[in-house]
Simulated scan of single mutants.
Amino acid sequence: MKHRPFKQVDVFSATPCLGNPLAVVLDASGLDDAALQRFARWTNLSETTFLLPPSHPSADYRVRIFTPGGELPFAGHPTLGSCHAWLQAGGQPRGDVIVQQCEAGLVHLRREPATQRLAFAAPPLKQSAPDATLLAQVMQALGVAPGQVIATQTLDNGPIWLTLLLDSVETVLALTPDMRALEHLKIDVGIAALYPAEPTPPLIARANREAKAFGRTRATPASDAPALEVRGFAASMGISEDPVTGSLQAGLAQWLIAEGRLQAPYLASQGACLGRAGLVHIERDEQGQVWVGGDCVSCIDGQVWL
């Protein structure tokens, strides 16, 4: 065991404690899988990452991503948070983009010149219609009626999300799922709803309350208002509700943009039911690549004994 540099980063928020926290061990050399899993279970965050020298010649660094329940091949907020921590620790990319190596392969990241906000290129997405029996069980666990479901899709970009597009933001925010039932089904579930083009008075009032609570100035209606409200339940990984979920947001963007339900660029909101204020920036470049971005802020900087 030795002292290793460590950061805890808040992702998808520029304000500490309003996004999704990530623990980052900046030097995981010499640690075996059991030690990585043990520390991830101890942090009890949705994800903990461990940085290593790359083994791929094109990569700038390598990351391994662990939940309290196991390792993930890819995840969104750990990608942004790990890159933020790596850059703060003096990491220098070899080219114009930052190349992260993870179990799913190489992920490209870029920095917005004006804000220094990071964004990752959404990995290739596999889509399929969910099994009808499983979907019915998930809807029962969520407490969702058939008439509240607009569309469904299974989204796979490393993590696999059974995803439901619901009829309203109010429906999404009001759900109180049966987490034991979801855990028994061993499936991660994402739910989302589109904001109306003209926000309803209850949504405007909610936006203003959140702006005041989180110390932000916000016009009504706001030019930076979200277009999508999202929640993610990952009981199979030991996470009842994830504050802000990059992999789910990436899959949703690719699905909903392709079907013409959303146009990029747009903002997505996540975490309100947990007292968070996560904002995810979605863009689509001329080549059709979807980019998933968010602010990051370091909250803890020090060393861990591992």
Rank of each mutant, 00 (worst) to 15 (best):
Q263K: 14
R38K: 10
D295M: 09
L175E: 07
L256F: 03
A129V: 15
A129Q: 14
L228F: 01
L256Q: 06
G91T: 06
A205G: 07
D27T: 07
H108T: 15
C296P: 07
G95K: 09
A235I: 06
V230E: 03
T15I: 05
M1P: 05
R180G: 10
F6P: 15
R117F: 03
R206M: 08
F233N: 12
G190A: 14
G105R: 04
P73Q: 09
R62W: 02
F120V: 11
Q254K: 15
I204T: 03
L22I: 03
V24N: 03
A225V: 00
C17E: 02
P5A: 11
I282H: 01
K2C: 05
L256W: 06
G275Y: 01
A89D: 08
T115C: 08
Q92F: 04
L80E: 02
P146E: 12
R117I: 01
L51D: 00
L26T: 00
F66V: 02
T176N: 09
H84T: 00
P199N: 12
Y266L: 09
Q303V: 15
L45T: 02
W42S: 15
C273F: 04
G76Q: 04
P159V: 02
L306P: 03
F39Y: 04
V244K: 00
G143P: 05
V149Y: 08
L248Q: 06
A222E: 03
R261S: 08
F39T: 00
L155D: 08
G271F: 04
Y61V: 15
A75R: 01
V304S: 07
G215N: 08
V189L: 14
N157E: 08
W255F: 12
E103K: 15
S168M: 08
P130E: 10
G69A: 15
A222S: 15
R218G: 01
T49W: 03
